[in-house]
Design a protein around this nucleic acid. Sequence first.
DNA 1: TCTTCCCGCCACTGG
DNA 2: CCAGTGGCGGGAAGA
Length: 382
Amino acid sequence: MALPSAYAAAVESGSKDIPYCRKQKSLGLLCSKYFLEPVRSRGIETIGLDDAASKLGVERRRIYDIVNVLESVGVLSRKAKNRYTWKGFGAIPKALEDLKKEGFRENGSAAADTSCSEKVSDDDEDEMCSYVNSLSQNDKSDSSSIPKYAVPSKSGDNRKEKSLGLLTQNFVKLFLCTDMDMISLDDAAKLLLGDGKHTSMTTRTKVRRLYDIANVLSSMKFIEKTHHPETRKPAFRWLGLNGKPDNGTANSMVLSESKKRMFGTDLTNTTAKRFKVDEDAHHVLKPHNPTRVKHETESEDEKTRSGVKSYHYGPFAPANVPKVGSSHDDKGKTVVDWESLASTYRPQYHNQALKDLFSHYVEAWKSWYSEVADKSPIQLMS
DNA sequence: TCTTCCCGCCACTGG
DNA sequence: CCAGTGGCGGGAAGA
């Protein structure tokens, strides 16, 4: 039953010296305590919310939070009222792949935005705006291993638009579809979930939610908290499938996590050195592996473009792939003509804060890019 | 003090 | 109508 609170209950029952510790109640801890650790030893089955709540000694409300983010990453799926099915970590690669594709696809239709009035001159910025802007839109793609928070009907459904699940997916997309490798929740909050136009959720609230999300994603080793090398500001860095609890089959991390951190690296500070590109840039995230954008690993048309001075690389460019057939062909070639697409979609932006933020990122990217461009061709082993 | 983020009220939802 | 869900933001623990 939904005991009000383990703490309160304990107090009532007489155990006078229970040292309430907030950290023992953190979503991340709860998540690993009940969902992650045990699940590996016990068989794949279904999960009951009540069971979880009582076992963890927390109120039901908390379980919803955890379950929502787990579901948005494919680990769980709602089966029925009070019941969730454990999909397992094996479902993650597919889910991430879907999210990534979805992210790129959304980008394509972003141009159909409601109010495109302002015309900015800086192209790169436009692309970034385009991408992130689209994150706040609902989509209706056909992939299906992850819950779709669609139904962009009328004004009434703000509920879903603000859901923790959607926020989680968009947060993850930020890493998957962008070369951002590290970002502060504050920036993420600014970037995600609407541009304030219609969404009334305040940044502060969004940040609170992002903390919730970050906690459970951390417990799953999707991300890790660190500090910006220079600023010391706290930020989260993407680990992807590398830190994932081994699921037996080692192939899970092969696809989908084409770029980013190489295997074995445990984050501790493996890539820190790479972050020394621009001193004058105060941004938090670091672009890297610009050419490695397509979700497939094979291609190597990188050098083809690396000489050009354009920044129309993938992650921020719309990628509405022509797409063969219809359903899922995980192996589709996502080679797109970024250049032309980029000039086709000229999204607008009307949020000073975001513009500033983007200028930031763009600058960072540019300096990094140019440096790498004429220094040596990117070479990453695979 | 500033950051992190748990708690639980209460509005929605769907059965 | 009611039980299940889950936004949302106050405010307290932690650093």
